[in-house]
Nucleic acid binder design. Sequence first.
DNA 1: CTAATTTAATCAGAGAATCTGACTAAGTCA
DNA 2: TGACTTAGTCAGATTCTCTGATTAAATTAG
Lengths: 145, 145
Amino acid sequence: MPDDELNIGLLLFIPYRSLESRVFQAIADAGFDDLTLAQAKLLQRIDPAGSRLTALAASAQVTKQTAGFLVDQLERAGYVERVPDPTDARARLVRLTDRAATAVPLGAKVIEEIEAEWTAHLGPRRMTQLRDALTRLREITDPYR
Amino acid sequence: MPDDELNIGLLLFIPYRSLESRVFQAIADAGFDDLTLAQAKLLQRIDPAGSRLTALAASAQVTKQTAGFLVDQLERAGYVERVPDPTDARARLVRLTDRAATAVPLGAKVIEEIEAEWTAHLGPRRMTQLRDALTRLREITDPYR
DNA sequence: CTAATTTAATCAGAGAATCTGACTAAGTCA
DNA sequence: TGACTTAGTCAGATTCTCTGATTAAATTAG
């Protein structure tokens, strides 16, 4: 099999992994070096208005026990807080603290930089096509929404 | 942020994860239910002619200790064997056994099916563009080659 | 051709992430 | 009201991954 005919799974994974590593490294370099990758992956899925643990677990595709374990750590490290959910006394909302509100946009900025590099390599047209195709693919591959 | 403007990392990850889950499930359903995800991820990267542990570790982006741990398990389960590398007495080649030679094409078949579904959803033109863009992206995001 | 360095792999030990199963409390519905 | 579902936690185990140190073979420098 020629090198340029990898299966579509690996083709998706390679740039994903590259981006993830760089974002994670940049955040660590900025002083947020107490975050683990698993924590960061959960952190980026927390809604600005707060997310329930169950929703977070579904979004990240882990069990709620795993999500709870990671949120415990994020809470101890001061990245999130748990507040009662006013609409349901069983539930609590996981909310970002000011500390996280500094780290998250930092990650977003690095992602923008990487997108710019990719656009420079592919050309704007192909980059738009890529984003468009992936967005449409989400309709049939995103189990969460 | 509108739902269709997820960051490019998540956009890559969502279909990747969907494909991975389905392939893994199909392989398990076919009777190869002793494979774990981490083992399968390594397995798919083994060259038909055999791969060195170090190359495998680099390709999967794990330490060689981790790769060794997983190859030990794959060996015990009968999916791979270690043979001396004729070109270097320090090295050994990890080679697929007949058992793996049944499981691997099965995974490839499921990937083909998923690709067909995606092509049906996106249209052949957009699917070709997707594959093309990802292949070119690999030039600047694949640390392994 | 030896000596120093690098490379391939393994051993030992520890930490992180994940799971299954069981449980409590609160909400929903027949 | 009573049965069922949902949100979250507790307990325990397994799996995955890492860092550091070691052995043996290959390569490079002097």
